[in-house]
Design a protein around this nucleic acid. Structure first.
Lengths: 346, 346
DNA sequence: TCTTAGCACTCGGTAGAATTGACTGCTAGT
DNA sequence: ACTAGCAGTCAATTCTACCGAGTGCTAAGA
């Protein structure tokens, strides 16, 4: 940082051919070995026909420009977050191994059941496929229209409101009243609720009866409790699997602890992934993540869309030292399969 | 309170007063410091008026009997699982600090919402209170009678069966038919299902119509899919919180990984806890656990019962080096609060 | 017989010195 | 512009010596 003379490097996002190759070689080897990479192995490994000395001087430049870093003076180089970023941005989109491709196809060919189950199993399969923590997000039910509403008597003062959405989501809410509800009144309220809410979404406001009798009260209570549902969050379906992989892929006990603690807060995970989605980025590397604990992690995200609308997402969490090409391809492929799967349902 | 008085035991299960005190002192100090405990500190700490030399010779005996172990020749002693077991069995049931007592009361005074939410929040609060991983189990819905069944049309070939149980549990199942279902037929099937299943439990078999028309087919399908539900497992509600605490309380990366991996398998956790419940034991220590990965863990379990019937459980997972007295009291207290909470609902 | 003081012994942990080896940066020569 | 060669740096490793916590044993006292 002290002296920077001839090259105003802030903006140049392109490296010449040779530097790019060197950077790529460093990333490749470091991902593989988890060790700092020295000039000799780069000179051999990258098929540049130059001597280590030349590589060294290039590396000095790369380090000045912030793509590489040295753990200590006499060690090899390690890619910085910026280095990984360059690597990822200039990655020609990788292909998935046919074995894995097959495995994925098989999985999606045989999987069935409720949406939740499919999402959860997808997450598990992604974890199993990659050996990293996987997150699968299902869209919130706030947008789906209501297909059916039913008020069920549990006991005199306590009813259960069961709401079914067109996408198959079911929500339940307790409703309490301070009078003793008659069975017939509950049935009537149920009927009225159905008439009132059928076809609306949870964010639509509806006209409720203002009468003061028991039935009207129950209807009002029910609508209120349903609309109190947080449209963005509560309905979200989040499936996080393979948290234990964190322990083996991230190093440093503290790091592990922090990441695990973060993964326990579903809301945080959801908003993190949504944020990445919003930026239309596929990968967040290390410090690019806003969240402190993820400073040593890479997050890969792929959206699940139907007709241009994002209804979910597939995410993968690992260390920055990760096989980007392969894992991005895997994640993308899973999200595509999911998309197709749900399109087929329509 | 929950003392065990039976077990004649093959080995001599009783230690003389002095040995017991020494064992207790070793446990106490080791729990506190995580270090092997030497004869001198025991001699001082336990209010025995004997010299370290005497303590040493007693310790030799205790080691022969399997209550203590030496990490290496010139180190102090550490309690074995058997040692902890003796300690726990002879523990006079501890009291809960008033601060925590208050915190618990406050929590249960203010908590409300669906059963699931209460259970989950309870688990979170237990984690927060103890700094260990907590598990809360809600009983399966298999025993509760069905209050309402509804078949909802999602699209022509695809219906959703929504079942409400008297305890407020809601289950949903997809039903597929190979004809195009009429709305009126679905409504009729729904009505018949209600008549058929109302008041039964999931494990009751019912007489289904054998006719071949659409309505009867849907009824048959629905009943089949509902009864296919695993009575013991699927309905279980499991809430595991604070997995990240594993990383800070258990040592050895491998250990951490294994325990975390185990915690991800809800079924395994459930059956493990149910097993402990079945044995009417409050604590499982180290190798007493059947599960390999828990060899270095202690599990504390307390049942939640209503009218003598076990409807759930509260569990705590930590290292064997744990404050048994306090944590057993806490766990028991939480389970009692939960019991009271649900009794109040009835 | 039980207890205790004393003593020799064991062995993990730590601290320091020496060595190794994987790198680098620099320079001078092609 | 490239490269060979060289001196320098520093983490990691090994070795040594040593400390100290804690033991087991023994012999003497109650």
């Amino acid at each position: 940082m002290a002296q920077k003379l001839s090259t105003p490097d802030t903006n140049q996002t392109d490296l010449d051919q040779r530097k790019a190759s060197i950077l790529e070689a460093v990333v490749a080897e470091h991902v593989d070995t988890a060790q700092p990479v020295g000039s000799t192995s780069v000179a051999q490994n990258a098929k540049l026909e130059v001597s280590p000395a030349t590589v060294r001087s290039e590396m000095v430049t790369l380090e000045r420009q912030g793509y590489l870093a040295q753990p200590h003076t006499s060690a090899g180089r390690v890619p910085t977050d910026k280095g990984y970023r360059y690597f990822v941005d200039h990655l020609k989109s990788g292909k998935l191994g046919t074995a894995k491709q097959q495995q994925l196809s098989d999985f999606f060919a045989t999987v069935r059941g409720e949406v939740e189950d499919v999402l959860e199993q997808t997450s598990m399969m992604l974890t199993q496929l990659t050996n990293y923590t996987s997150v699968v997000l299902g869209g919130s039910s706030s947008n789906a229209p209501i297909v059916s509403v039913q008020l069920v008597n549990l006991d005199a003062h306590h009813q259960l409101l069961v709401t079914v959405f067109s996408d198959g989501t079911v929500l339940k809410h307790s409703v309490f009243v301070d009078f003793e509800a008659e069975h017939t009144d509950v049935a009537e309220a149920s009927k009225q609720l159905n008439a009132l809410l059928h076809g609306t979404t949870i964010s639509d406001r509806v006209q409720v009866p203002s009468r003061q009798d028991d039935v009207a009260t129950m209807v009002r209570e029910s609508v209120a409790v349903l609309h109190a549902e947080q449209p963005t969050r509560e309905g979200e379906q989040v499936f996080i699997t393979g948290s234990s992989k964190v322990a083996e892929s991230i190093d440093g006990v503290d790091n592990v602890r922090n990441v695990l603690a973060l993964l326990e807060q579903e809301l945080v995970v959801v908003s993190m992934i949504e944020e990445v989605l919003a930026e239309h980025v596929a990968v967040k590397i290390g410090s690019e993540n806003q969240l402190e604990p993820l400073a040593s992690c890479a997050v890969i995200v792929a959206p699940v869309t139907i007709e241009g609308e994002t209804i979910g997402a597939v995410g993968l969490l690992g260390p920055t030292r990760i096989k980007y090409s392969e894992l991005m391809a895997t994640t993308r492929s899973v999200s595509e399969h999911l998309t197709k799967h749900f399109e087929g349902d329509r």
